[in-house]
Simulated scan of single mutants.
Amino acid sequence: MTTKASQFEVHHNGVTISVSRGGRGRPLVLCPGLLTTQADLHELTDLLRRDYDVTTFDLRGHGLSTPADEYTFEAFLSDLDAVMTALEHRSPLLVGHSLGADLAVHYAAEHPGTVAGLVLVDGANPTPEPFLTDADLPDFQAMAEGLRHELEPVKGTPRQVLLNPHDFLDVNLQVEAVRSGILDLYQTIDQPIHLIMSTSMAGTSDDARTRWRNQNWRAGIERLVRERPHVTTSWLDADHRLVLTHAPEIARLICDTQMPRTLDRC
């Protein structure tokens, strides 16, 4: 059995970040992605807490964390930084999904030697071609507007997301810009890195644009592995929601990831 999770808050730069910690074993910090909350990740978190002392949290404007005046990549990175600073963990395994994966890479690059390793789930991908081009903006704008209706029912709950469609689109554009230089950051990280990627990140539609996006996604990881051969990769037959749909497989892959020998095996 796992220990009951404790709840606490981290206050920084005018926002309050909701954090939970529970489990047993080596420390692990789980960073959610954009539009994803701790509540959404409950299945994965519960599985990991069987073998790890897991800390997870809600980014600003998500879940039980408070809204903010700005939603930028740097602001979200400051949320992760504040949580890591507040913890007593020494060299945790840092796991991030989507935007959370990019935040994890930046944190590890900016704070060398502070994490035992990285597990990056469907994010932080140095794709050879931009994933979001001018031609894609209408699709993403429509997606953002669709999310407005999807998120309405969960407002006021642990699954609430307070970003508006403009925020969603703007953060995606920022992530696109950040990923254009992320290959260089990988060069600065000495800790083990394992990526868990979806085969259908852009979905399973058979239209030409979706096929291209999925091919570009795979090409980015192939590019990364060529540049950093020690980076290991697992592929799941899933789309970008894999942290929700394939939690047991992801937990097993995280547990099986080869980290320094000081880390306990599951």
Rank of each mutant, 00 (worst) to 15 (best):
P112H: 06
R213H: 09
R261C: 10
T233L: 13
A177R: 10
T55K: 00
G146M: 15
T262F: 11
R159I: 06
L137E: 14
E110T: 09
T245W: 02
H230Y: 12
M259Y: 09
H240Y: 07
P229W: 07
A75I: 03
T72A: 06
Q187D: 15
E222D: 10
I189R: 14
R49G: 08
R24F: 04
D207P: 04
R228H: 13
T66A: 05
V115C: 02
A251I: 14
E110I: 01
T2A: 11
R223E: 08
S78M: 07
D264N: 12
A251G: 10
T199A: 10
R241L: 11
P248Y: 03
L185W: 13
R179D: 02
D206P: 04
L263H: 02
Q187F: 08
A208N: 02
D58Y: 01
D136N: 12
G25T: 13
D136C: 15
F73L: 10
L47P: 00
G156T: 09
W217C: 09
P260V: 10
Q174T: 14
T85L: 07
P248W: 09
A108V: 01
S234R: 01
P67Y: 10
V121M: 09
N125E: 05
R252C: 13
P92V: 08
H240V: 08
R223G: 05
D51W: 03
P192A: 09
D79A: 06
T204V: 10
E110K: 15
A142G: 13
L47W: 00
S91A: 09
S200E: 11
H106K: 09
G23E: 01
L35Y: 05
I182T: 10
T56G: 02
K155A: 07
A109E: 10
S205N: 08
L169N: 10
L35D: 02
L28K: 00
R218P: 03
T37Y: 05
M201L: 10
D206W: 03
W217K: 13
L44M: 03
I182M: 03
K155Y: 08
R241W: 08
G220T: 04
L253Q: 12
T3H: 00
G14A: 13
Q215F: 07
Q215C: 12
V119F: 05
S65R: 01
L120H: 05
E110Q: 10
I221V: 13
M259T: 14
E9M: 12
R148M: 09
K4S: 14
D167W: 00
R21S: 06
H240C: 07
L185F: 14
S91F: 14
C255S: 15
L41G: 00
N164Q: 05
P138I: 07
N214P: 10
V83N: 05
H11N: 12
T66N: 15
T72H: 03
R252T: 13
V171T: 14
T37P: 00
V95T: 09
G61D: 04
V154A: 05
T204Q: 09
T133S: 15
S198M: 10
E9P: 02
Q160N: 06
V161Y: 01
V15C: 08
A108W: 00
